[in-house]
Design a protein around this nucleic acid. Sequence first.
DNA 1: CTAACGTACAACCAAATGGTTGTAGATACG
DNA 2: CGTATCTACAACCATTTGGTTGTACGTTAG
Lengths: 114, 114
Amino acid sequence: MDLIFHALADTTRRDILTRVMSTEQSVSALARRYDMSFAAVQKHVAVLERASLVTKQRQGREQIVQGDPGTLRRARRLLDDYEDLWRMRVSAIDDLLAEETPGTAGRDPNTTTH
Amino acid sequence: MDLIFHALADTTRRDILTRVMSTEQSVSALARRYDMSFAAVQKHVAVLERASLVTKQRQGREQIVQGDPGTLRRARRLLDDYEDLWRMRVSAIDDLLAEETPGTAGRDPNTTTH
DNA sequence: CTAACGTACAACCAAATGGTTGTAGATACG
DNA sequence: CGTATCTACAACCATTTGGTTGTACGTTAG
């Protein structure tokens, strides 16, 4: 998890991810889009790869990069879990209020049912 | 966004977030749970606060920390967007296949309709 | 009032990050 | 064949990170 979120905590890497999620591309094709050295982009891809957000696949002399939706889902699920915690906490307070003053539902504006 | 994901890229911080999402707590109450100095935990909370994942609220001499579900939602949405990119890409390939060999739907096992 | 508690913040340190340049090995092209 | 392209990787550098300790200050408890 540390690896996943760390990989996502960089604008360039998120941009690379955006690109390869919709179209798989070679590392050099990606590098051409950014104002930094090939080696720098190569490192960014390596970080994404270590996090399993991306996979590489050799094709001749090129290395084709493609996104991995499975890892993305795992990350999203974690965020969902945090939101669930919040909802449970609020509903616990709601229950308490409902018990004390029945009829006064007191909905929390931050709580969104999906 | 960098701040948000960077804040999430640390086990201790995610653990703090888990705690305050379900129950708001003072910084020192949090600090007692971890095998590190108060100052270290204080810094972790500061990182979460800079990322707006958490808000602090003074109460006498204590500083009460509570989770912010809104920021969490923003992060989750971004991950959703990446998954959407993937689905659009796959469906584009599907359309192409459907056009070439109608009847052979060829569903991608990675694609999950929500 | 005094002592203990909760917090803020500075100074310091080792390790990791994000970038660079340079070198070298495969693979494709003319 | 020779040359250009794509990749890998090492060495280096400035900055940030995650931790420490120490000091100072407002607030609560005895």
